[in-house]
Amino acid sequence: MSLFLGKIHYWLFNKITWFEGIEEEIQNMLENKGYKVDDWIADIYNKYGEPTEKKPLEDMIDTSNIHGWLQEKITSAESRQAALITKGVKEIGDSFLESVKEIYIEKGKKNADEYLNEGNSIESPAEAFTAVNNFILDGMPCDRVNEIVENSEEHIVWQSTMDIHGQYWNVVGGNVNSFYELRDEWIKAFVENLRVDYKFNKISEDTREISL
């Protein structure tokens, strides 16, 4: 079965499971704080599907519809997290969002350490940008969401060509700005933990930068 799969499929699958890992950490945080969320989770799973099983990709994927299977997993993961965060904000308030922010920040630091411990090194802002995109989930590769607009030895600037995430937040009555704020926290923690002399900067709503 793995003969039908290429590196890009495993790359995307790892990004999906990374995103689902954040969802799992949010659930654990809620339970550790004593919130009764079983009904929340059951309702979300019923509406948007359950997280991916912890099995090798080749043991699960529909090889007759690889693209469709991966897109379905993205839709399910994004919808569940949007629903979970939106529910938490409505039921608990802004303190919940602050707790989720801490999860994203700690995840960024941990992912940077793991990336470096795997033998990777970052020699340019462009390499840091590539590392970021080995984690964050921005649709399918064919969506081409991020466009590099400046690239030099000192910095790299990229622009989002479309809002691919808003659709999931709109369905659950949430605010997609929460998603972007949380992800920016992850990128900042990740980049600045990869190299202490690198900085992440949000230039505008759709433009971001990694610089020396």
Rank of each mutant, 00 (worst) to 15 (best):
G93S: 11
V196D: 14
I85K: 02
V132I: 15
N193W: 06
N170L: 12
H67Y: 11
I22R: 07
S2D: 09
M29S: 09
I203P: 05
Y168F: 15
K107P: 01
V89P: 00
V191C: 02
V132T: 07
G34L: 13
V89L: 14
T52S: 14
W40C: 04
V171G: 04
L12G: 00
E91I: 05
L57I: 03
D38P: 00
E114G: 04
V89K: 14
E192W: 07
E154N: 14
E31V: 13
A131S: 12
G49F: 03
K87R: 14
E106P: 02
K110L: 12
R208V: 06
Q167G: 07
E98S: 10
Q159W: 09
Q27H: 08
D184A: 12
K188M: 08
M1S: 09
V176T: 08
I74Q: 03
L12Q: 04
E24D: 13
I44L: 08
D206H: 08
W158K: 04
L182Y: 07
Y104R: 09
E31R: 14
L57H: 07
W11K: 13
S211P: 01
T207D: 08
I22E: 01
G119Y: 03
K47R: 15
V191N: 03
V176F: 07
S79A: 13
D184W: 06
S121V: 12
E114H: 09
I103W: 04
R144K: 14
D43F: 09
K101R: 14
S124Y: 05
N177D: 11
D184P: 04
I210W: 05
E185Q: 13
S76H: 02
A42V: 02
I85C: 01
A83T: 05
W158I: 01
P56N: 11
S95M: 12
L116K: 14
W40G: 02
F135W: 08
E78G: 01
N175C: 09
E154I: 06
G139A: 07
I103D: 02
W69A: 09
E181F: 02
E72T: 10
F135C: 01
I122W: 04
K188G: 01
S124W: 04
E150F: 05
M60G: 06
W18Q: 11
L137Q: 03
A128G: 07
E50G: 00
L3I: 07
E205H: 10
L116H: 07
A83D: 04
W40Y: 10
I164A: 04
D59Y: 12
T207A: 05
E102I: 08
D138C: 12
N46R: 14
W158C: 00
I136K: 08
I156N: 00
E153I: 10
T17Y: 05
I210E: 02
T161L: 13
S76E: 09
K47W: 05
I164T: 03
S79W: 02
S99L: 08
N177L: 13
K110E: 12
H9Y: 06
H165I: 15
L194T: 01
G21T: 08
E24S: 15
S178K: 09
E72G: 12
N65E: 11
E118A: 12
H155F: 12
